[in-house]
């Protein structure tokens, strides 16, 4: 998953091309392209949504109909616990994802701030290693991480998994936040120190509020890192049903010779909801120019 601040930020175009400036042909072409792109993006989600309302038998029809035979049966069965401890998994996932978000963002914010403001030996190599770490495929890391967790006595526990997620989220988030902190003038830090803040006070009361857009993006990234992840979760959590996360639990719908498409689709929709909520909460901070007005005129 790659996310960066610029792609999520809403930029105001300098000057909008007016509708009348375009020839009709260009207009048609443009709209056609946009319609196709939107369809490509929306269609799979739409298909899943449609499927989630239908019984398995009709899941793979060629001409899906949204309104005939639609029912909430799949949802009631999943939420009712007939198909495994869905609500428990859900709780586990929420807990693990939120913990990951909080810990990873806090660690990366403090690290990123130090990297942005202080000069210390090894700073360049630290930042470099953060980049290099990103280049390893996750699968390679499973065994070494597992050994480390055993050494720490954390195998099978949620906390262990949270720490594992942090190892992937923290380097990226640190990098992003450092970049964001770099855009906040150091004069603000100094004004705060003269006004009576301790170095941590400067970080907490001035820099963090000003870095909200950066924090929003990194929180979202950290949340998603943990929310939809399967490989680490299946390797590091204990096999007991009640300790599974959603992504792992969903596999019960896909068995060797039979796939419960309806249930899988309904569960997928349910899984997507928290991610959408987090995105919604976070996106209002994704506005540029929070720190404008700090300096000069």
């Amino acid at each position: 998953m790659t996310l960066d601040a610029s792609s999520l930020q809403m930029v105001k175009p300098e000057r909008r091309l007016k509708r009348s400036d375009r020839s009709p042909l260009a207009s048609i072409g443009l709209h056609a392209a946009l319609v196709v792109a939107s369809l490509v993006a929306v269609f799979p989600v739409f298909w899943v949504l449609v499927t989630s309302f239908k019984p398995d038998a009709r899941a793979v029809e060629t001409s899906p109909q949204l309104f005939n035979e639609s029912s909430l049966d799949n949802y009631t069965r999943i939420l009712g616990g007939e198909k495994g401890a869905f609500l428990t998994w859900f709780g586990n996932s929420v807990l693990i994802a939120l913990l990951t978000t909080v810990i990873a963002v806090f660690l990366s914010a403090t690290t990123g701030y130090a990297a942005s403001r202080f000069r210390f030996p090894g700073k360049r190599s630290l930042l470099m290693s953060f980049l290099v770490v990103q280049m390893f495929p996750f699968a390679v890391l499973i065994v070494p991480l597992y050994n480390i967790l055993i050494a720490l006595g954390l195998q099978g526990s949620s906390i262990g998994l949270v720490l594992v997620y942090c190892t992937t989220a923290v380097p990226f988030c640190t990098y992003m936040l450092k970049g964001y902190f770099d855009t906040i003038p150091t004069d603000i830090d100094e004004a705060g120190r003269v006004d009576g803040l301790s170095p941590f006070g400067v970080f907490w009361r001035l820099v963090m509020p000003l870095a909200k857009p950066g924090l929003a993006v990194t929180s979202f990234y950290a949340f998603l890192t943990a929310w939809g992840e399967v490989a680490f979760a299946s390797a590091f959590l204990s096999a007991a049903d009640e300790s599974k996360t959603l992504a792992v639990g969903l596999q019960v719908f896909v068995q060797q010779n039979r796939t419960e498409w309806g249930h899988l689709a309904a569960a997928s929709i349910l899984v997507a909801i928290p991610a959408v909520i987090v995105f919604y909460l976070v996106q209002r901070f994704l506005v540029t120019g929070l720190s404008s007005g700090a300096v000069k005129g």
Binding site: P185, D187, I188, E190, A191, G192, V194, D195, L206, P209, L210, L290, S291, S292, G293, A294, V295, K296
Partner: peptide, 13 residues
């Protein structure tokens, strides 16, 4: 002491 910075360094938030 109190300091006035060249850039003013007001707290934007």
């Amino acid at each position: 002491i109190a300091m006035v910075f060249q850039s003013y360094a007001l707290y934007p938030h």
